[in-house]
């Protein structure tokens, strides 16, 4: 409380100190993340614009209804829920690593950072499976008067409206869906996945530095806080990717 009072009375803009009360690196990480938020925001809003301009848009519950080793079982939302929980849990282990760093607890930092890396790799593996499933999973589509088997790519979309009463090998034949769907899905989840990948690399570098006592000698674990900010941001973006592509 005494600190809060002193903070209130500090003339933050009178010079000689940072008006933000954080070290340079952390402030710049915040600004980088803010600009990155605008990049992701622009992508998602562009996706929304195209979706609003279409009379028909694929139903995510039909497109994303598969689960590894479950064959053709219809399990909407299941796999993406798993991915979401993996990312939430890895965010929690990261915040625990930062907390251990505050206490100069090297063992704790190593333990929680290692779990965070495991979570990140698990998420990337899930995404790789999902992409493979979408690209290689062929569906019967009526194109130019012929039934063709196509997967979901940036130039093809088999998730159009069903052609009434037309079956092909027991599967409903559809019309081609809006082409933009694949481009946006692979583009945005790919950009997010690239962030996860770089986050995992950053965390591995941090782990090596922790094990080599770099921060122990430096006297603080502020680098872990900055890596943590980046990692939480990746989780934050996933909240909105999950919202825009899978839920609504």
């Amino acid at each position: 409380m005494a600190t809060a009072q002193a903070q209130m009375e500090t003339k933050w803009w009178s010079g000689g100190k940072s008006p933000f009360n954080v070290e340079y690196g952390k402030l710049m990480m915040w600004y980088f993340l803010m600009s990155d938020a605008f990049t992701f925001g622009a992508f998602l809003i562009s996706y929304g614009t195209i979706r609003f301009s279409q009379n028909y848009w694929p139903d995510p519950n039909k497109v994303f209804n598969a689960f590894p080793f479950a064959g053709h079982a219809n399990l909407p939302l299941a796999f993406v829920s798993l991915m979401t929980f993996i990312l939430i849990v890895s965010s929690v282990t990261m915040v625990l690593a930062v907390h251990a760093g505050h206490h100069m607890d090297k063992k704790g930092v190593v333990k929680w950072l290692a779990w965070t890396i495991v979570g990140g790799i698990a998420f990337l593996a899930c995404q790789a499976w999902e992409w493979t499933h979408l690209i290689t999973g062929h569906h019967a589509v009526l194109m130019d008067g012929k039934i063709q088997e196509i997967g979901t790519t940036v130039s093809m979309n088999p998730w159009g409206a069903e052609v009434p009463g037309m079956l092909h090998n027991g599967e409903h034949v559809t019309k081609p869906g809006p082409v933009a769907f694949g481009g946006y899905f692979f583009g945005i989840t790919g950009f997010h996945g690239f962030h996860v990948l770089s986050g995992v690399v950053i965390n591995i570098v941090m782990l090596v530095m922790v094990m080599n006592d770099v921060f122990e000698r430096r006297g603080h674990y502020l680098m872990i806080e900055k890596a943590g900010l980046y990692w939480h941001f990746v989780d934050l973006v996933w909240v909105f990717v999950f919202l825009c592509f899978y839920l609504i």
């Binding site: 100190k17 940072s18 009360n21 070290e23 006297g219 603080h220 502020l222």
Partner: peptide, 8 residues
């Protein structure tokens, strides 16, 4: 001391 920006 490496972070003189931080007042509190």
């Amino acid at each position: 001391p490496a972070h003189p920006e931080v007042t509190f």
